[in-house]
Design a protein around this nucleic acid. Structure first.
Length: 412
DNA sequence: GCAATCGGACGTTCAAAGGT
DNA sequence: CCTTTGAACGTCCGATTGCT
């Protein structure tokens, strides 16, 4: 969605300026720490406790500072570009700050676990509107912003190569069609997993295969268990995915099924055993372009590769008996946000998932005018059920969306 | 008109990389 | 050791839609 200019940020006296001028835009005021209520509602907070908003909604009791999650450590960042003394170089510098063009990181041949996540020769998805564009690159963003000050920031075409921080996944068919996992020359990795749960099993299995020598042995996977240890590093998952692309795994113990994607038979009797492939069967992870895409397919997001990685990234995933909806679709009625993404209601669309149906999620708010009741339902807005911020999931989704493994890196 | 919900722009923080 | 970089992470704006 393209948000308009935040006119509130334009200082007085700047409103009437044309975009060709270079208005000095006031910074958006932002509290250092929003209260939990405002944070969840994605609404403006203030420094007071209780904050104004909580007072308004009679939430003074729960108006406390939200907790920040600790920053990750040990993330390799690769070499920095040369410092620029000349301010006029900033733009070009920023353009390169996508972390991509000048990447000269470690040899891709080194063990993947030692690589920065996504430090592969990955390339962006062709259809990803932001493909390869590391949103986290503030210099790039700010460079753009400086060019478009006072007007809508136009997204630039993505850099051609992914930089550090991208999560390598096997990602194909950004716009899958009925040919469903048809061979894709742009991602000619070995293929399997027409079923996302199968992919989940596969990743679980591969994660079991990948284990730094120093780590203690993991218990055997039991049927119905995904068995991805919570402490599995994301890099390990990257390796796991890579492994899926480059090995011919034995069948993992768990079988699960999925995928309601595009006309597959959804009848339980048609449920193919996940990972029932022979040793020669290729592997392919489902072409879930994004978290939203997973929803658009009518598939519980937990069955997407995104959710798999998200799950692990969030330190979950071990020992769950089935494939619960990790991030249950928000209780939007079908078509509610058709302008943004197409939520497909499996019950109504004829698509059915053999994964557990998404939980009820939050009931549609009752729009009660009594502040407490109404607000309570709105408080989940920015967070999943267990408090993971939407922003976090979006970022992860973006990274997944923007990433896939270069085929030569898959050893092909 | 208000509330819910969302995508994403924008701001902050701080570890890693680089410079001295 | 200090500075710079840039990605992680948080905040919240503004659009859209549904309900009262």
């Amino acid at each position: 969605m393209a948000s308009p200019v935040q006119t509130s940020l334009i200082p007085s006296g700047e409103e009437g300026r044309s975009s060709s001028e270079t208005p000095t835009r006031a910074k958006r005021a932002q509290v250092k720490n929003a209260c939990v209520n405002c944070q969840k509602a994605c609404k403006k907070c203030d420094a007071g406790r209780p904050c104004q908003r909580c007072v308004k909604y009679s939430l003074v009791d729960s108006c406390v500072d939200s907790k920040r999650k600790p920053r990750k450590k040990g993330i390799k960042r690769g070499p920095y570009k040369k410092r620029k003394r000349n301010p006029t170089d900033d733009d070009a510098a920023a353009a390169a700050a996508g972390g991509v063009a000048g990447w000269s990181g470690p040899d891709p041949s080194e063990p993947a676990a030692a690589l920065p996540i996504g430090r592969t020769t990955a390339r962006p998805l062709p259809s990803a509107s932001h493909a390869g564009s590391p949103r986290g690159s503030d210099s790039l963003r700010r460079a753009r912003q400086s060019r478009t000050m006072g007007q809508r920031v136009q997204r630039q075409p993505p850099p051609p190569v992914l930089g550090p921080g991208a999560i390598p996944i096997l990602h194909v068919d950004p716009a899958p069609d009925d040919s469903d996992y048809s061979e894709d020359s742009s991602s000619d990795v070995p293929l399997l997993a027409q079923h996302a749960s199968g992919a989940l099993s596969a990743v679980s299995y591969a994660a079991q295969q990948y284990r730094p020598a120093a780590q203690p042995p993991q218990p055997q996977l039991q049927p119905g268990m995904y068995g991805i240890p919570p402490e599995t590093p994301t890099a390990g998952l990257a390796t796991a995915f890579r492994s899926l692309a480059t090995t011919r795994p034995r069948a993992p113990p768990s079988t699960s099924y999925h995928h309601p994607h595009h006309g597959h038979s959804q009848h339980p009797h048609h449920r193919p055993p996940a990972f029932s492939q022979t040793a020669t069967a290729p592997i392919r992870l489902p072409p879930i372009a994004s978290f939203d895409h997973a929803q658009a397919l009518g598939s519980p997001p937990n069955t997407s590769s995104l959710a798999i990685l998200t799950d692990v990234a969030l330190g979950r995933g071990a020992g769950r008996p089935t494939a619960p909806a990790l991030y249950p679709p928000l209780p939007r009625p079908p078509g509610h946000f058709g302008h943004r993404h197409h939520y497909s209601d499996p019950e109504n669309s004829g698509q059915q998932s053999h994964d557990p149906p998404p939980p009820e999620g939050r009931p549609r708010p009752q729009y009660a005018r009594s502040a407490g009741a109404s607000e309570a339902s709105s408080l989940d807005s920015c967070h999943s059920a267990d408090g993971v911020s939407r922003a976090f999931i979006r970022r992860l989704s973006r990274r997944l969306h923007d990433t896939h493994i270069e085929q030569e890196h898959a050893g092909l």
